[in-house]
């Protein structure tokens, strides 16, 4: 009250303590959650998987750094979000893809989808999903491939989805092989067990809630059962393609999906319907990335429609 004798005190607005969570910490958790899938992928499809993922991560980091340099912005790769994008994109690519498409896809994800929209937190579409879709269109042949399954004595086999759709000849792998990931597909999408370990880790660390993933996967199962009239085929649908990696890691992306729990349920349901429709009726065997991208467009509206009623709100 009298003349301030000590003015070395920090005066800041409340609250004065925090939960200790940081964006970087969350991204690190997502990276840890992706590691089982990366390890499984490199065992199943061989060491080249690591090269593909490394190139994709490096390209994402380089792309973001370059963009920040050119536009004279603060460096942002320390938040690790570019690493997450690179990892998810890399795990969504076949192990035998050429290096050059990977670089193009990664730069597209980071620069076009993320940085140009204002950087972390501002993009409306999931960078990895958008880049995967772009690559499906631009590098159809390279993306349609699947790495040779090195883990067992088998030749490169077509993906189960292509077989189920009658687009390729072959027999469906055993269900246990589906769980272990011994089937054709992208590096990180095949091993269901690894992805579920990642999911459990994210839940335990409270990085994500169960809503989107459980509703998405559950509804794909139920709808597929309805369509194929066989719970076994429905299970194959769930374990095939990029559903699990998409439902665990891409449909739960904070930035591009709804914030309310009810909104997450709606989002998951929408993704499930789109995925099943594309798989059944579309020209492509797989529709997870398309579905997530499609639902990303509705995120804002879902958020508005699932607004929670404030406690004690009185309508004017």
């Amino acid at each position: 009250m009298e003349q301030a004798k000590e003015s070395k005190l920090i005066v800041s607005v409340s609250p004065h303590i925090g939960s200790g969570r940081t964006t970087r910490g969350i991204m690190l958790d997502v990276i840890i959650a992706l590691l089982p899938a990366l390890i499984a992928g490199s065992i199943i499809f061989g060491i080249r998987s690591l090269l593909v993922v490394a190139v994709s991560v490096a390209s994402c980091l380089a792309g973001e750094t370059l963009f920040n340099l050119i536009t004279k912005r603060k460096h942002t790769i320390g938040d690790l979000s570019a690493v997450v994008t690179g990892l998810i994109l890399g795990l969504n690519l076949p192990a035998n893809i050429g290096i050059y498409p990977v670089v193009i896809g990664s730069l597209f994800a980071i620069i076009v989808i993320k940085c140009l929209f204002g950087g972390l937190g501002k993009n409306f579409a999931n960078p990895a999903a958008a880049a995967r879709v772009m690559m499906l269109l631009a590098f159809s042949n390279a993306m349609a491939g699947t790495g040779e399954i090195k883990a067992v004595d088998a030749v490169a086999s077509p993906t189960p989805l292509a077989i189920m759709k009658g687009m390729a000849e072959g027999r469906l792998p055993k269900l246990t092989d589906m769980l272990l990931g011994l089937r054709g597909g992208a590096i990180g999408e095949t091993c269901a067990i690894a992805l579920l370990i990642g999911f459990a880790y994210l839940l335990i660390r409270k990085v994500i809630t169960w809503h989107t993933t459980v509703v998405y996967v559950g509804c794909v199962f139920l709808l597929s059962w309805l369509i194929y009239r066989s719970p076994e085929l429905a299970l194959y649908q769930v374990l095939s393609g990029g559903l699990l990696i998409g439902a665990v890691f891409m449909a739960t992306d904070y930035v591009t999906t709804p914030t309310t729990n009810l909104g997450k349920v709606v989002f998951g349901l929408g993704c499930a319907i789109m995925t099943v429709l594309i798989r059944k009726l579309g020209a492509y065997p797989e529709g997870v990335s398309f579905s997530i991208l499609f639902m990303n467009l509705f995120t804002n509206y879902i958020d508005k429609l699932t607004r929670r009623k404030p406690l004690g709100e009185v309508k004017a």
């Binding site: 920090i10 800041s12 004065h16 303590i17 925090g18 969570r21 940081t22 964006t23 969350i26 938040d79 979000s81 950087g119 972390l120 937190g121 501002k122 809630t209 904070y254 930035v255 709804p258 914030t259 309310t260 729990n261 958020d303 607004r307 929670r308 009623k309 404030p310 406690l311 004690g312």
Partner: peptide, 25 residues
């Protein structure tokens, strides 16, 4: 215990939405 942590961009994690006792957004 006195520091003010650096502000970074909102990543729309939704924690504030889901933890608000008054259910605000």
């Amino acid at each position: 215990d006195a520091g003010v942590p650096e502000e970074t961009p909102c990543i729309r994690c939704g924690n504030c939405v889901n933890h608000c006792p008054m259910r605000l957004n």
